[in-house]
Amino acid sequence: MDLHINFVTEKTTRKMNSTQKCDFIISRLKTDCVLVFEGGLNPEEEAALIEETMIQIDHQEFLGYKILNPTPLRMSGLFSRKNLKMTVIAPHNYDHLSIALV
């Protein structure tokens, strides 16, 4: 099975509202993509995503997703340091989410 990973930058999601983000995520999950969000999702967006996912689960192809918010990475640049927050979202049938982050 091929694995597709989409890295989604903050720039891409900055102009999206919660509904647009949910649509964006679910449409890609349905094509078996793993999504890595720079900046992560906030709890309200996660709750909205759960609600929309429950509506769209069809009990055949799309069964939901798995989510992981790993500890933020401490990034050191030449002039700055910052914590990079990420959220990883994978299709329900993807069983190796934690391994992928090692």
């Binding site: 709890p43 996660e46 709750a47 989510i67 992981l68 918010n69 934690s98």
Partner: peptide, 16 residues
């Protein structure tokens, strides 16, 4: 353990 990720979502929403 590891504890379900959903707990953070629930706690985060309650805190918000």
């Amino acid at each position: 353990a590891p504890f379900d990720q959903i707990n953070w979502t629930v706690i985060g929403n309650l805190e918000a």
